[in-house]
Design a protein around this nucleic acid. Structure first.
Length: 408
DNA sequence: CCTCCACTGGAATGTGAGGCGT
DNA sequence: ACGCCTCACATTCCAGTGGAGG
């Protein structure tokens, strides 16, 4: 928790860090100052237009914000909220609240956290308990709070698609016309899924439709600028020239996710530190990238269903023990039967087994090539692991149900 | 150019879990 | 509590595939 720069003279914890000056700047939750937001000017102004009403005491519009992770959706939303608060005309007060629906994923939790965040007890005299009330009570508290304090309220619901249902959206969007509150309310709903709006209740849908805002992934130039803005996380002169451009290039390949870009940069710093290098260089970035790649891969494998793991285990076994690195489906299936028998699992049909391998190919864990052996055997698929077989094997064996296989 | 091999992949169908309206 | 629907996962069946080798 404490910043690296705190200088407690304990030899166990090195006095200073020779790579990082302020590592916090590279934390995922770090919010940069307004003038450091890169390449999102258009999105900022569009979002502001929608919320413009609030500043003048009218009703703001609802907005649905789409975009992949790490494209600045939350950042821009928070930023615009803050600007709206500051820009509020004389006599107009604006309340803003941000709810992460990944944390508060039920209706009650979301409403209670909204009420708690918007309520200033000193001013309203209302106290909002963290738990214990019924959902409707929390709504009532929320309406009271809003009436007591604000002319307009902007609510940001981040990752709404993780919400268990859309009743919060429903009730919030209708609060004004249903006369629950005297002021107005605007919702910024943020979602990673483009189709999210299709699953919504018709009423909610209509209040968000045609008010969507898309966030494009960052390109390499923008990523580079984002990283330059945080270069003071490192000590001066520690970053060599090509580190940031290279990290940006890697991250741009990975769908333009700014979060990943920063991760790679931080990782590169950590690698350099562990190597006791004086500067962060290109090869540290490459190593960090590989590390990230491996992490992603491990996540894929460890998250796979049991049967898929058994299939992969069969493939790793062949890759390690047999010659060659690509194997016919029938060979892998034979091995898979042995694995299942040993682990006392159900043996799936060949047909299903083929589909499982195909899924893994889609995820990028295995690679499948079609070959034809002619009159010697017709059409076959050759399955090959993309990552190192040992790595895959170790990851699978971490699974309790698979562990026994380690004893052959 | 035709055959032929052994697997591929589409389609139909079955099954259990979980959500939804009544 | 109830049937109804959808979804993910799995099985069975079988026509289709396409290059090596005659």
């Amino acid at each position: 928790m404490a910043p690296d720069s705190s200088s407690i003279d304990d030899p166990l914890f090195d006095a200073g860090h020779h790579i990082f000056a302020n590592k916090d700047l590279l934390k995922t939750g770090h919010v940069p100052e307004a003038d450091r937001i890169v390449g999102r000017d258009e999105e900022i102004s569009k979002l502001a237009t929608r919320l413009n009403g609030a500043v003048h005491g009218y009703s703001p519009e609802n907005v649905m914000v789409y975009g992949k992770t790490g494209t600045g959706k939350s950042l821009v939303s928070r930023h615009v909220c803050q600007r709206a608060r500051n820009a509020a005309q004389d006599g107009v007060t604006i309340g803003t609240a941000y709810v992460d629906c990944a944390e508060d994923d039920t209706e009650t939790q979301a409403v209670s956290s909204l009420a708690a965040k918007l309520n200033d007890e000193a001013e309203t005299g209302i106290s909002v308990p963290h738990t214990g009330l019924s959902t409707s009570k929390y709504y009532k508290l929320l309406w009271e709070t809003l009436d007591a304090q604000y002319d307009s309220t902007i609510v940001v619901l981040d990752e709404v698609d993780l919400m268990d249902d859309d009743s919060v959206l429903m009730k919030l969007s209708r609060a004004e016309e249903a006369g629950k509150i005297t002021g107005s309310i605007g919702i910024i709903a943020i979602s990673n899924k483009i189709q999210y709006i299709d699953d919504l209740n018709e009423r909610v849908k209509s209040s968000f439709q045609h008010k969507e805002l898309f966030f494009k992934p960052y390109d390499a130039n923008q990523l580079r600028e984002i990283m330059y803005n945080r270069r003071d996380a490192f000590r001066e002169g520690v970053l060599s020239e090509d580190v940031i451009p290279l990290s940006a290039a890697f991250a741009a390949q990975e769908h333009g996710d700014a979060r990943k870009a920063i991760d790679i940069l931080r990782h590169a710093g950590e690698v350099a530190f562990e190597e006791e290098a004086d500067t962060v260089r290109e090869h540290h970035v490459r190593q960090a990238q590989q590390h990230a790649e491996k992490d992603r891969f491990r996540e894929l494998v460890s998250g796979a269903p049991t049967q898929a793991k058994a299939a992969l285990l069969a493939l790793t076994e062949l890759s390690i023990n047999a010659s060659g690195d690509a194997f016919l489906t029938s060979q892998v299936y034979d091995q898979y039967e042995r694995v299942c028998e040993f682990l006392d699992m159900d043996v799936l049909s060949v047909r299903r087994f083929r589909d499982i391998l195909k899924e893994q190919a889609f995820l990028g864990v295995v690679e499948i090539e079609k070959i034809n052996k002619g009159s010697a055997g017709g059409i076959h698929l050759q399955n090959r692991l993309i990552e190192d077989a040992q790595v895959v094997r170790e990851t699978i064996l971490e699974d309790a149900r698979m562990g026994d296989w380690a004893s052959e």
